[in-house]
């Protein structure tokens, strides 16, 4: 079975082709980050029009790389939310049109579900497992009980973890994208040089909050720059301290989730701790999570960075997982800006 996946919910226009053995057959990706380099100017990455302009080339690229014809595809999956509605619409409409034209089933994929299932493309991780989804737009803890069956344990009350890192990087004068630049700047810095707050650490639920951390960092930066710019050493210390604070809080929240699952008689034992989303590429966070998982006797799984950030392959894979169970979507499925994962089980009626 070969499934085509389309992802346009944020800044990346992405297409992927996978088969049921988990082989990636081809992909096409257009990202505003890469696009900045050749053009050296401003690219309207948020515009739905930009997705519309690039989706065709991404499809061509994926098929060229795979050597497949459009007629070889057994199903088409597209992200139908949550995300920037203009972008989501472009991908959803393209996916539906292709499915209708090719006479194959259409699968409406929830962007968060795609991140949550990606790990199974690489390895046969069995259900249920705990997913930490951390990116620029999302920060949540989910139990993945099966395809379409998710329990949200906690989410952010304000900013996403990646947003905190991105904005923190901007305050330190680092280039976009902030996460990787911050990680680079933190090298050699002392992660305990600045005592930044750890919002919600120790709280009895699994919620996240990063707004206060962002504000505290800003106050530190302002106090330190009164008499001139930051020295490289102080910059490294600040970057390392921010990263440490984020990793510390996230690890605490994950530990709380593990305790909640353990103490809940209705939950089965978890098989793994999985990190997904762009921030899952952060080495400091990865190290903390790996250590935490090992104290719980759980394997820690995460995908390579290219599969952690938004991509078409994860959508194709989520579509394939759904198709294997006979779960398809009507062409009338709407594109939606908000789409909680927990509503999926109800919608698919299982």
């Amino acid at each position: 079975m070969i499934v085509l996946g389309i992802e346009t919910s944020c800044d990346e226009t992405a297409v992927g082709l996978v088969d049921d053995t988990g082989r990636v057959l081809g992909q096409g990706l257009w990202s505003q980050i890469a696009a900045h380099r050749p053009y050296g100017g401003v690219v309207p990455e948020i515009a739905a029009r930009a997705h519309g302009d690039h989706i065709g080339a991404c499809l061509d690229e994926a098929f060229r790389e795979s050597g497949l014809d459009r007629g070889d595809v057994d199903g088409v999956a597209a992200t139908c939310g949550p995300g920037l509605i203009g972008g989501v619409m472009v991908g959803a409409v393209m996916g539906k049109a292709l499915a209708a034209g090719l006479g194959v089933p259409f699968v409406a994929v929830n962007h968060l579900e795609a991140h949550a299932l990606t790990v199974r493309l690489l390895e046969a991780v069995t259900f249920p497992y705990l997913v930490l989804l951390v990116s620029g737009g999302h920060c949540q803890l989910l139990i993945v009980r099966g395809v379409g069956h998710y329990r949200l344990l906690g989410t952010t009350l304000d900013d996403a973890a990646g947003e905190c890192l991105d904005k923190g990087a901007a305050m330190l004068g680092l280039p976009y994208p902030g996460g990787p630049a911050l990680e680079q700047a933190a090298k050699g810095g002392n992660p305990h040089a600045f005592d930044l707050p750890r919002p919600l650490k120790g709280r009895s639920d699994c919620a996240f909050s990063f707004s206060g951390l962002k504000t505290a960092l800003r106050q530190r930066v302002e106090a330190l720059t009164v008499h001139g710019p930051l020295s490289n050493a102080v910059l490294a210390d600040l970057a390392a301290s921010l990263q440490e604070a984020v990793a510390d809080v996230v690890a605490d929240r994950v530990a709380q989730a593990l305790r909640m699952v353990r103490d809940d008689p209705n939950e089965s034992s978890l098989t793994a701790l999985v990190a997904a989303g762009g921030v899952a590429s952060n080495a400091t966070l990865r190290a903390r999570l790996a250590a935490l998982a090992s104290t719980w006797g759980l394997p820690f799984k995460t995908s390579p960075p290219a599969l952690c950030t938004d991509n078409g392959i994860m959508v194709a894979w989520a579509g394939l997982e759904r198709l294997r169970l006979g779960l398809t979507s009507p062409l009338s499925t709407p594109a939606r800006p908000r789409w909680p994962l927990e509503s999926l089980a109800v919608e698919s009626g299982n």
């Binding site: 995300g83 900013d159 947003e163 707004s211």
Partner: peptide, 24 residues
């Protein structure tokens, strides 16, 4: 954002009001 959240709360919005930086 804290103020926007408070204002939406007063206007009767009881769902979570996350930062719109990502979704615009």
């Amino acid at each position: 954002t804290t103020f926007a959240r408070a204002l939406l709360g007063v206007l009767g919005v009881h769902e979570l009001v996350p930062s719109p930086t990502f979704t615009l």
